[in-house]
Amino acid sequence: MTIKIVIIIFLGFASGLAVGSGFVAFLTVLGIIPRLTQLSKTMKMIQSYEWAVVIGALTGVLASLRDPNLNLSPYLLIPLGLTGGVYIGMLAAGLSEALNVFPILAKRIRLDGKIMILIMAIVFGKIFGSIFQWLYFVHH
């Protein structure tokens, strides 16, 4: 019995370790935190940003495993949705940037100066896709 519990604890710990380090590695590759510190000029606070990510991830773990119930106002969801959206948006931008799509695209169609217009196409596409999905798509 004890050996089973020890093995389970070990397995749980190992999978948590793998998932956690994978998450951090992913975040590092996409360069979201450096980008945010660069925009806000808060390089000195980088350590507390690390903690924000770690605490956020652990809160997510608690929320998904324990099903807590806070009984708060639904309007609290607006800032949560907004910040969550900004985060996913930066993730998507970081990913498409890491994939090196834009420089090649700009070269191919000789649009070096107006590449922002193309990025706006992607941005509006994302917003449209998201709103369309939640308002219409998932209910049909």
């Binding site: 985060y87 948006g89 931008a93």
Partner: peptide, 16 residues
Amino acid sequence: FQIPYSIGLGLGMILF
């Protein structure tokens, strides 16, 4: 939750 999320999505890309 979903509407602010969708707007934030675009905002995040622009911010990046």
